[in-house]
């Protein structure tokens, strides 16, 4: 992936196992968010392939629109929260259900039995999802009135509403205090078990990364410079060099 003359991602070879928690780390400007944007179709990579292995067989994601990617089962959160601020919490989650619903224009206008049943089922599903992750009480609050930590959490819940098989989290712990970060760690574990999905997260909080992930990729200047389990990464000289500078 390149922006003009800038090569933002170069020869990134990345594999995420089903049901795993993978972390992507690297210094600022390494290209982590750009990598997410390529995966989710916001940018179309200049070259390369992205393959999603589904039960029905492998599926190419390269060149698909963001909404198509989401429908295929990739959901994401954003580095700087992008919630629908003037809508209620529940509506945010309902919008997440969009790609799992069918009602069209006529259904909306005539509100036939099928549409009503679908609306009801989805509202119920959304409410339960909120309840499961501790936001049930705020369902009818306006999103902009939520405290910061709850907003981060809601963004994850909204992503879950699309029923993904791979959840992409872009710096989910940014701005959280130590207690909230611990909660987040538990939350990610619970989500993986309950929703049976794989998680890929970008994170700068090393203690979180080290304790949560099974596999870590380290990126610098758009290249993957190291990969492996937390132990391997902790002792990799190139990683230490990238983070701490030449001397280390």
């Amino acid at each position: 992936m390149s922006f003009g003359g800038l090569l933002a991602l170069d020869q990134v070879d990345f594999q995420i196992g089903a049901g795993s928690i993978t972390a992507l780390i690297g210094p600022n400007g390494a290209g982590k968010t750009t990598f997410f944007n390529c995966l989710t179709g916001i940018y179309i990579p200049t070259s390369g392939t992205i393959t999603l292995n589904q039960p029905s067989g492998p599926r190419q994601l390269h060149g698909l629109r963001p909404d198509q990617v989401t429908t295929l089962g990739l959901a994401r959160t954003f580095q700087n929260i992008r919630l629908f601020n003037d809508l209620t919490v529940l509506e945010n989650v309902l919008i997440g259900c969009h790609c799992r619903m069918k009602a069209g224009l006529l259904g909306a206008l005539f509100r036939d039995r099928k549409t009503r049943a679908e609306e009801r089922a989805m509202a119920e599903f959304s409410y339960q999802l909120l309840d499961r992750y501790g936001l049930g009480g705020a369902a009818n609050e306006l999103t902009k009135n939520l405290p910061y930590g709850a907003q981060r959490r809601l963004e994850i819940v909204r992503a879950l509403a699309t029923r993904p098989s791979l959840l992409l989290l872009d710096e989910p712990a940014a701005g959280l205090n130590i207690g909230e970060t611990r909660e987040l760690e538990d939350l990610i574990h619970i989500i993986r078990e309950r929703e049976s999905l794989s998680v890929l997260l970008i994170e700068h909080d090393m203690s979180l990364v080290m304790s949560i992930s099974e596999q870590i990729y380290v990126m610098e200047y758009g290249r993957v410079i190291a990969r492996g389990t937390p132990e391997v990464i902790r002792n990799d000289s190139r990683v230490i060099q990238a983070y701490l500078g030449e001397e280390a």
Partner: peptide, 27 residues
């Protein structure tokens, strides 16, 4: 009815944040 339907919510999402709207699977 439109406002409180799947289509209406897609419009609201479009108004609020175009990128997040797409990331929610809305065309």
């Amino acid at each position: 009815r439109l406002e409180n339907s799947r289509l209406g919510r897609a419009w609201l999402a479009l108004r609020e944040d175009e990128i997040a709207c797409q990331a929610m699977g809305i065309n």
